[in-house]
């Protein structure tokens, strides 16, 4: 798949996360995404399976894994065409929820009630 052919979402994934090829997940086995393979930090790391990586997706994205476990996940995901887009999609989902939900709601009547409450408090 070339850049021109890649879907919008996958292009966005590429923009959002540097360092990966962002190609669509397929039935291919996990492969290094760029010539050169794993980064130096992955040379002596314990290999994990795709199902283990899937199990840990939220703990990893929430920053809740111990450094060694996080390194195992990172080393797997960065090289896995199946897990990489899934991880990135889940990260996008969490960002999307936060941006969508964290909003203020206007309520002029409530403002008046609070002002009146403070007036009463100030008056003792």
């Amino acid at each position: 798949m070339t850049d021109d052919e890649s879907p919008t979402l996958l292009r966005r994934l590429k923009e959002l996360f540097s360092g990966g090829n962002g190609e669509a997940a397929g039935s291919e086995p996990a492969l290094p995404d760029e010539p050169g393979g794993a980064s130096p930090e992955c040379e002596d790391v314990e290999e994990i399976s795709c199902s283990e990586a899937a199990e840990k997706v939220y703990e990893y994205l929430d920053g809740e894994l111990a450094p060694e476990r996080a390194r195992e996940v990172r080393c797997h995901v960065e090289q896995c065409k199946r897990c990489y887009p899934m991880y990135n999609w889940e990260q996008m989902f969490l960002d999307f929820v936060r941006e969508s939900a964290d909003r203020a709601e206007e309520n002029p009547e409530l403002r008046e009630k609070v002002e009146a409450l403070l007036d009463r408090e100030a008056e003792g």
Binding site: L9, R11, R12, M92, S100, A101
Partner: peptide, 27 residues
């Protein structure tokens, strides 16, 4: 839903089309 979306949402409409109100309501 990722497994479904990679097949059904090749153009990435999921995040582009869903408005904030829908997320708030779903929460």
């Amino acid at each position: 839903v990722w497994g479904q979306l990679k097949e059904e949402d090749p153009s990435g409409e999921f995040f582009d089309r869903i408005i904030d109100d829908e997320v708030v309501d779903a929460i």
